[in-house]
Design a protein around this nucleic acid. Structure first.
Lengths: 197, 197, 197, 197
DNA sequence: GATGAATGAGCCTTCATTCAT
DNA sequence: GATGAATGAAGGCTCATTCAT
């Protein structure tokens, strides 16, 4: 009996994982516009009705998938983070983490980029995601106070620190450029030049 | 010419302009996913069938609209460009132009951001657009040769130079930040720090 | 001035002829279901609106075209008809005429077959067409009275006399059979065996 | 089997039958041109989308319906067929069967006549249908060998044997003639006169 | 929990026809 | 007379979602 239930649960998780992967893959291939629930179900080898067991509706499926990926990315970004590190080292470390995550999960990252630039993005509670990054933001503020970093609105710091990497890593925006680890180190070094005082 | 007009009715430029504006507005409001041809037509005070006089199909409507905007933006960006300018001045000038265009045509810019991150982007001939920016690219190369700018792949230069501005100006990505001209000057100055040697 | 008007009329007739031919060809190629006024107009190198100068509406275009062809066929059928001929000779002559017309105007015949088996057929005044065949019907009646032809309902005579030829000549129903003049003579001879007493 | 039914809903044969009947009826009443999927669905008391569960598209619906009827007709035609029968008896038997089928299923027959003369006919695999008639064709060949039937191309035999009946039974082509069983016997007798040596 | 059948609403597109020139 | 622009209605088909099993 016990084994029976364990077998059931394992099966369920595999099914949900299949749905998420199918969603990401299909949206990457044909976009939100063409990705219907029926197509996602078929790709995941699942009945359309089954999707509605795991998610309330299509919107919930997409937003939940996005949130899950974004949370993973946030955690990956903070890997090995130590508030006692020098500011530059901590930021560089996060940049490397970001690049590594994108390299390993290109499909997931690609999905989030399309999502974040679509109206679906308006549905997510951004505070929840930003919480993960709070230690990083705090470090930036510390850098300002210590006169290491330019005293400008934080949005300017963010946009110069990590968005160039997002841009570089996005095959849609840079189809002919395949960033190497060395490129990323270069990019992070440039980003530091941008924000440092 | 006179006879020509007598013989037939002529396409109405005002009508076409209304279709383009309706497309941009609606896509900005409810996204590609929800922007049906019928809704666009209604917004433009036009019959759905009329849209198919001006465009081959929905895809053509969206792609053509994007191309038109992107071409305008490219031309605006190059305003007052002078190849004999110092590299920094030329790049800063383009940055200011970019910001001005975005400020004046926020709706158009907003549309292109969603478009560029959707699969529709895969349908456009990027070489056509990039041609407009060629003088800017040449100037970057000149800067490298003159040892003013870092000798790194051009993609790194691009992504640090203008992508932060795109990010800052995008209300979807920075809903609570309204960039002032001074912020942009700051941002461009930071971008310069990033790429300068 | 006179020449001017003649030139105009010639031009008009050519245009109308082009419309008819385009209608027949298109209906043969893609059927009634897919033959839109716009497509017919394009095939005839004419504006859709022009068709409405010559015909009241689409139905009128199709029915008129049918009537015109059927009238031609009727006249061709009666060629060299002489009521003083022996019954068999007269009927055989009509059969040959029928075959010759079909051979020369395969497209027109093909059109009428599809038309006659579609609901458009319900719109035509059959008495008008049958009038042309009246002398032939009279001859059949004469044959019955003279005890040369079986005394059965005329519909049976008709269906045995000419419908086999219609069937043989229809490439849709006999795609692999190309009737030769000799085949038709054979077929007419068989038809005569069917109706003769 | 029991588990199968528990696990899912099953296609409803009654529903499919209703769709077929609605298709036949509507096409008979208003023709292929006017018979839209929406109208057929409404007639069958079914959603338009439901039709696409049973058929791939409209074309498939029409062609499948035709094939089903034609197969039924073929089987009915061969009822009581015995290759050891005298040639004439066998052919007459088939003619009677044909007439009986048409009388009982006038709507189905009427549908096939319009279908066979439309471009939809070009989509069907005729060999599949003709297989059913093969024994009849063999018998005709036997009749030729035994010098009972005229030695002419089989197409001539076919067109004289059964096409007149098709014509007689078609209310579109003979709106004022209602064939009685006796008429059919007469017609078959005439057909025999046409093909017999 | 899981399924495939079932659906009304809506999709993109084309229709037959009319309008202004 | 002749045209291409313009249109509301309708075309075939797919959608997100629910139902019965």
């Amino acid at each position: 009996m016990f084994i029976y239930y364990r077998a059931m649960r394992v099966k369920d998780e595999i099914k949900q994982e299949a749905i998420i992967q199918a969603t990401v893959d299909l949206v990457n291939e044909i976009g939100f516009v063409s990705s219907s629930v029926a197509k996602i179900a078929k790709r995941a080898n699942v009945s359309p009705a089954t999707i509605y067991i795991y998610y309330q509706n299509k919107e919930d499926l997409l937003v939940s998938t996005y949130m899950q990926i974004k949370t993973c990315l946030g955690q990956a970004l903070m890997d090995h983070f130590d508030p006692s590190f020098p500011v530059r080292d901590a930021l560089m470390n996060a940049g490397i983490n970001l690049f590594n995550y994108i390299s390993k999960h290109a499909d997931m990252f690609y999905f989030t980029e399309q999502f974040a630039n679509s109206p679906y993005n308006d549905l997510v509670d951004k505070t929840e995601i930003e919480q993960v990054f709070q230690p990083l933001f705090d470090m930036l503020k510390r850098g300002i106070k210590e006169k290491i970093i330019k005293d400008v609105p934080v949005e300017l710091l963010h946009s110069h620190l990590y968005y160039p990497i997002f841009n570089l890593a996005n095959p849609r925006l840079n189809p002919n450029f395949k960033a190497s680890p060395k490129d990323i180190e270069l990019a992070m070094s440039m980003a530091w030049d941008a924000i440092k005082l």
